[in-house]
Design a binder for these strands. Structure first.
Lengths: 187, 187
DNA sequence: CCGCCTCCTCTACAGCTGTAGTGGACTCTA
DNA sequence: TAGAGTCCACTACAGCTGTAGAGGAGGCGG
C-alpha cells in the first residue's frame, strides 16, 4: 500500500509534533520522521501553517475512522454500556493514539494564535461533541447538548492529566470517574 | 516597588509564553516583553530550560498566593459553599490569570520531553491536588484523595476547553458542572 | 584617590528555520 | 522519437536563536 505522499507527510507530522512539540515542528524534522529527502515537506506544504492545517485534517480523519464504529449501536443505552464505551475510548487515547492525543493539545494551544487553525479545530471539535450528544441522547439524558459538551471537556481533562500531567489515576479510577460523570448526566 | 530582576523577567516570561507559545518563547522575546535591553534574560537565565524552570517557579508562587486565602475557612463545608469556591477559582483562571493558565498548559506539554521541568511541575501539581483533597476532606467526602485528583483533572479539562477549545459553556454551565462533580464526590 | 567587584549591556557566532526557486528525471501525447 | 508536462530533490538565502564572552558603569573598601 503506497499511501499518498501528502498523507504520509501528515502522518509523520503528527508523530513529530507529539515527540518534539511546536518548537521542533519544522519542515526538516517532518522530512526526517517521514523518511523522505529534505525539501519534501516544504514542497507539499509551503508554509508551516499549511502543514499544521494538513496535520489537523489528517488527525480529524483518523479520529473519525476510529470513533466511527461506536455510535453504530442500536437500542437504548444503559449506564454500564455507556461507561464501557467511554472508558474504552479514553484508553485508546492514552495508548494506541497517544501521539495523536498529544498533537491535538499542541494544536489546540496553537489555535489560540492562528485563526486558520482555530476554524478547523472548532469544526472537528463540533463533530466530537456531536458524538457525545448523540450518545447521551441514545441513553435518554435530559439536556444532551449541554451535558455532551461538559462531558467531552471533562474527559479531555482526565486524558490531559494522564498524558501531560500527574497521571495519578489508574484504569479503575478512570472508569469510576466516567461512571460518575455519566450517572450525573443521566439523572 | 522595584521588584527583583529575576522576578520581573519570570513575570514577562509568563506573558510571552501565553502570547507566543513555546515557539516564540525566546530570550529576546522575553527581553522585549519585560522592557529590558536585549541580553538581560539570557544573562539571568543562560539556557532556555533554566528560563522555563524559573517561569514555572514563579507561576507556582503566584498560584499559591492567589489560592492561599481559600482553605483558610473553618467549619464544615456544604455543597453550596464548595460550589462557590470552585466556580470562583475557575473564573479566576479564565480571566485574571488567563495568561498564567495558558502558560501552564504550554509547560505541561513541554514537560513531556524535559525531566527537569517535569519534576517541578509534579511538585506544584501535588500541592494543588492536596488543596483539592483538603477541601473535600473538610466537606466530609469519602476517599478524598482519589476524588480530589479526579476533580482537579476534570476542572482542568473544563478550563482548557474554555481557554483553548470550543469554549461553549457559559458561567452557569460551568457552575452546574462543578456542582454535579462535587455532589458525586460527596455522595 | 585607587583598585576591585558586582551588575549589567552589548556583541559575536555558529547553527537552524521558513520559504522560494532551479533543474533534472520520468511520464504521457502525438 | 520529440516535446510538453508533472513530480520531486536539492540548493540558496536571509533571518532568527541559543549561548558565551567582552567590556563598561557604578559602588565600595581602603
Amino acid at each position: 500500500m503506497t499511501t499518498d505522499r501528502r498523507t504520509l507527510i501528515a502522518d509523520a507530522a503528527i508523530t513529530t509534533l507529539a515527540a518534539e512539540g511546536m518548537r521542533g515542528f519544522t519542515h526538516r524534522a517532518v522530512d526526517r520522521d517521514a523518511g523522505l529527502p529534505e525539501g519534501s515537506t516544504s514542497y507539499y506544504f509551503r508554509t508551516r501553517e499549511a502543514l499544521m492545517v494538513a496535520t489537523l485534517g489528517r488527525m480529524a480523519e483518523l479520529d473519525m475512522a476510529e470513533a466511527g464504529p461506536v455510535p453504530a449501536l442500536g437500542g437504548v443505552l444503559g449506564l454500564d454500556e455507556l461507561t464501557d464505551i467511554v472508558t474504552a475510548l479514553i484508553q485508546r487515547f492514552l495508548t494506541t493514539s497517544r501521539a495523536r492525543t498529544l498533537a491535538r493539545y499542541e494544536l489546540s494551544l496553537e489555535s489560540t494564535r492562528r485563526p486558520a487553525l482555530r476554524a478547523r479545530l472548532l469544526e472537528h471539535g463540533a463533530a466530537i461533541r456531536a458524538m457525545g450528544e448523540h450518545l447521551l441522547t441514545a441513553a435518554g439524558a435530559p439536556e444532551p447538548r449541554r451535558r455532551g459538551h461538559t462531558l467531552v471537556a471533562q474527559i479531555d481533562g482526565l486524558v490531559f492529566d494522564q498524558v501531560a500531567g500527574a497521571g495519578s489515576l489508574d484504569e479503575a479510577d478512570l472508569r469510576a470517574a466516567c461512571r460518575d460523570m455519566l450517572a450525573s448526566a443521566l439523572r
